[in-house]
Structures are given as structure tokens and as C-alpha cells.
């Protein structure tokens, strides 16, 4: 997603990362019990992942995260005045880039008066990559792996 941010920066698109609760707490990165603790884990995340985008912390009670749907890795695109242009239950960079391109092009043509917006919904698809996901869980500790794979009904 940092690459998407770089790619669209010259079209005046801002990109941020909102740090939420830990979706899969483990021995290395446990659940938050204070804002100071949440801040420290967010700093660790930024360092480990190499996040280049602006990182913003949600409140300890997850007020924003809860209002926007509570999913672990959502992406939203907001336009002028906070108009919701895109909402996705999962972050897929290709899907975000395609939708962002369409949104930007649409708004530019709308300004010229040669198009009209309409509402649509669709089901998107992403590649299933259990190996990578397990590696992400392992980064948080064995508990994170166990909670997901041993206790989740298949």
C-alpha cells in the first residue's frame, strides 16, 4: 500500500494507516491495555513493516474502528467533503489502485460535465496465501498462530 501511496501522490491523494487493536494478539505483541502501550506497538509495527505512510492511532476503545466496521484490514477512500468513494472489507492493493483510478478519473470528467456518477457494488477476489498469513501470525507469537489455526472451525 505504500507503493500505491507513492504512485498516486502526484494526483493529490493522501494515504494514511490507522492503527487499530491487535487483531491476533500473541506473546510478542499483546492486546492493548493503555494508550501508551498501543503507541509502543504501533511504533514497532512501523519499524518492522517499514511503513512510510502517516500512522494514526485510533482511541483505545476503537471508536473509529468500530464505526467503520471493525474488520482487521479494511480500506476506505474518501473524496471531497468526506464522500465515501470506496469501502473494502479487505485491503488488496490492486483493487484499491483500480478503484482509486476510476474515482479520480470520474471526478475529473465530472468537473468537465461529461459523466454522471452511479452506485454499484461488487464482490472482489484475492489470492489465498496461507503461508504468508501464517508468517504474519508468527510475527506476533505462537499464541496468535494457535488461536487462529487450532481454534477456528474449518
Amino acid at each position: 500500500m505504500d507503493a500505491i501511496a507513492d504512485r498516486f501522490a502526484d494526483r493529490a491523494v493522501r494515504s494514511v494507516f490507522i492503527y487499530t487493536r491487535e487483531a491476533h494478539p500473541g506473546e510478542l505483541y499483546r492486546h492493548h491495555t493503555s494508550m501508551a502501550g498501543k503507541r509502543e506497538i504501533a511504533k514497532a509495527l512501523r519499524s518492522v513493516v517499514g511503513l512510510k505512510r502517516q500512522v494514526l492511532l485510533d482511541a483505545l476503545d476503537g471508536a473509529a474502528h468500530q464505526a467503520y466496521g471493525l474488520l482487521p484490514n479494511m480500506t476506505w477512500i474518501f473524496g471531497h467533503g468526506g464522500l465515501i468513494l470506496y469501502k473494502s472489507a479487505w485491503t488488496d492493493p490492486d483493487d484499491v489502485a483500480e478503484s482509486l483510478t476510476r474515482a479520480l478519473d470520474g471526478v475529473e470528467r465530472r468537473v468537465k460535465g461529461d459523466n454522471l456518477p452511479f452506485y454499484s457494488e461488487r464482490l472482489s477476489w484475492r489470492v489465498r496465501d496461507d503461508e504468508t498469513f501464517r508468517a504474519l501470525l508468527e510475527r506476533c507469537g505462537p499464541q496468535a498462530v494457535s488461536d487462529f489455526y487450532d481454534k477456528t472451525p474449518t
Binding site: 500500500m1 500505491i4 501511496a5 498516486f8 494526483r11 493529490a12 491523494v13 493522501r14 494515504s15 494514511v16 494507516f17 490507522i18 492503527y19 487499530t20 487493536r21 491487535e22 487483531a23 491476533h24 505483541y29 503507541r39 506497538i41 504501533a42 511504533k43 509495527l45 512501523r46 518492522v48 505512510r53 502517516q54 500512522v55 494514526l56 492511532l57 485510533d58 473509529a64 474502528h65 467503520y68 474488520l71 482487521p72 484490514n73 479494511m74 480500506t75 476506505w76 477512500i77 474518501f78 473524496g79 471531497h80 467533503g81 468526506g82 468513494l85 485491503t91 484499491v96 482509486l100 474515482a103 479520480l104 471526478v107 504474519l136 510475527r139 506476533c140
Partner: peptide, 25 residues
């Protein structure tokens, strides 16, 4: 995270579109 200052979500779209990713580790 960097400055510790409060940023409202509505501040994010004042100059143009914004892509907002929610996430954790």
C-alpha cells in the same frame, strides 16, 4: 504517531481524496 497531535478524520480530505487503511501487525 509521530507528533502525538490530534488529527481528525475530517482533516484528511481537506486537500483531496484520501486512502485510509485500517490495520495492525
Amino acid at each position: 504517531l509521530e507528533s502525538g497531535e490530534t488529527v481528525n478524520i475530517k482533516d484528511l480530505w481537506t486537500d483531496g481524496p484520501v486512502v485510509v487503511e485500517f490495520g495492525s501487525f
